[in-house]
Amino acid sequence: AEIMKKTDFDKVASEYTKIGTISTTGEMSPLDAREDLIKKADEKGADVVVLTSGQTENKIHGTADIYKKK
């Protein structure tokens, strides 16, 4: 799966169907969080990951919607 910015995804959204939401939390780098989200998306058969939230304090927390091409 590839990560797309919401603004970029909005241009092609009609080509995809939302298949779920994924999240990651833990003591990790932003890059590790990104890789974890991609891994989870791949496991669910998603083609595209669109980040919906991200937070960093002591731990990273990120959520994303996942989509499959129609």
Score class of each variant (00 low, 15 high):
16 Y>L: 02
61 H>Q: 12
49 V>Y: 03
50 V>W: 03
4 M>D: 02
18 K>N: 05
65 D>R: 01
35 E>F: 10
37 L>A: 04
36 D>S: 09
7 T>I: 11
53 S>R: 05
8 D>I: 04
19 I>N: 01
29 S>M: 10
16 Y>P: 02
65 D>M: 05
60 I>H: 10
69 K>E: 03
59 K>V: 12
24 T>C: 13
35 E>C: 12
54 G>D: 14
34 R>G: 04
21 T>M: 07
34 R>W: 11
27 E>Q: 12
57 E>Y: 08
60 I>A: 11
57 E>A: 13
54 G>L: 15
19 I>E: 02
57 E>D: 11
69 K>G: 04
16 Y>K: 01
11 K>V: 08
1 A>V: 14
68 K>P: 01
37 L>C: 03
56 T>N: 11
28 M>L: 12
49 V>N: 02
47 D>G: 04
3 I>A: 03
11 K>D: 05
31 L>Y: 12
9 F>C: 03
68 K>Q: 05
45 G>C: 10
59 K>I: 12
62 G>I: 15
47 D>I: 04
49 V>A: 04
45 G>I: 02
7 T>N: 09
36 D>Y: 15
3 I>N: 01
35 E>R: 14
38 I>R: 08
38 I>A: 04
6 K>P: 08
52 T>G: 11
50 V>Q: 01
53 S>E: 14
59 K>Q: 11
61 H>W: 14
60 I>W: 14
66 I>P: 01
26 G>W: 10
48 V>F: 02
69 K>M: 07
27 E>C: 15
19 I>L: 10
41 A>T: 03
53 S>L: 14
68 K>Y: 04
44 K>T: 04
47 D>H: 10
36 D>H: 12
24 T>G: 04
50 V>L: 03
29 S>G: 08
26 G>E: 11
57 E>R: 03
32 D>V: 06
3 I>L: 08
69 K>C: 06
14 S>R: 08
35 E>Y: 10
37 L>M: 06
32 D>K: 12
14 S>T: 11
14 S>A: 13
19 I>Y: 01
46 A>K: 00
51 L>S: 02
49 V>D: 01
34 R>F: 14
52 T>P: 09
52 T>M: 07
1 A>Y: 02
57 E>G: 14
57 E>T: 08
46 A>R: 00
3 I>W: 10
9 F>N: 01
30 P>K: 07
4 M>T: 02
39 K>A: 07
55 Q>I: 13
43 E>H: 08
12 V>N: 02
36 D>A: 11
16 Y>V: 02
13 A>N: 03
22 I>V: 08
48 V>I: 11
63 T>A: 07
44 K>A: 15
65 D>G: 02
12 V>K: 04
4 M>L: 04
15 E>K: 11
50 V>R: 00
61 H>R: 11
63 T>L: 08
27 E>V: 12
4 M>F: 06
33 A>C: 10
6 K>S: 08
16 Y>N: 01
23 S>I: 09
63 T>S: 09
52 T>C: 11
5 K>N: 14
13 A>S: 10
58 N>S: 11
12 V>H: 05
42 D>L: 13
44 K>V: 11
2 E>L: 15
64 A>G: 04
28 M>T: 08
38 I>F: 03
67 Y>C: 02
63 T>R: 06
26 G>P: 09
25 T>G: 12
10 D>M: 10
7 T>V: 13
69 K>L: 08
27 E>L: 13
39 K>Y: 04
47 D>V: 06
47 D>W: 03
58 N>D: 14
34 R>K: 07
1 A>R: 01
4 M>V: 07
46 A>I: 01
22 I>A: 01
19 I>D: 02
10 D>A: 08
59 K>H: 12
28 M>F: 06
7 T>R: 10
44 K>N: 08
50 V>D: 02
21 T>K: 05
47 D>M: 04
7 T>Q: 11
60 I>Y: 13
64 A>E: 03
69 K>A: 05
4 M>Y: 05
57 E>Q: 10
69 K>Q: 04
6 K>V: 06
8 D>P: 01
66 I>R: 00
43 E>N: 06
52 T>V: 08
60 I>G: 13
65 D>V: 07
12 V>Y: 05
26 G>R: 12
54 G>N: 12
40 K>I: 07
32 D>E: 12
14 S>G: 10
40 K>W: 05
31 L>M: 11
14 S>V: 07
9 F>S: 01
49 V>R: 00
23 S>C: 14
7 T>L: 10
2 E>S: 13
55 Q>C: 14
18 K>P: 04
39 K>C: 07
57 E>M: 13
17 T>I: 15
53 S>G: 11
48 V>G: 01
54 G>E: 15
63 T>C: 08
65 D>Y: 07
53 S>W: 14
28 M>V: 06
66 I>M: 05
20 G>N: 01
32 D>F: 08
52 T>L: 10
41 A>N: 02
6 K>R: 11
36 D>G: 05
66 I>W: 00
36 D>T: 07
18 K>G: 03
32 D>A: 12
14 S>N: 12
2 E>N: 09
56 T>C: 14
43 E>C: 11
21 T>Y: 05
50 V>M: 02
34 R>E: 09
18 K>E: 03
56 T>D: 12
2 E>Q: 15
16 Y>H: 00
30 P>Y: 14
24 T>M: 08
16 Y>E: 01
19 I>M: 07
53 S>H: 13
42 D>W: 12
26 G>H: 11
41 A>V: 00
17 T>M: 11
57 E>H: 08
8 D>V: 04
22 I>H: 01
43 E>M: 09
64 A>H: 08
34 R>D: 05
31 L>P: 07
6 K>H: 07
22 I>N: 01
67 Y>T: 01
16 Y>R: 00
33 A>W: 14
43 E>L: 11
14 S>Y: 11
24 T>E: 03
10 D>R: 05
2 E>K: 15
18 K>Y: 15
33 A>G: 05
5 K>I: 13
3 I>K: 01
30 P>I: 11
9 F>P: 01
8 D>T: 04
31 L>D: 15
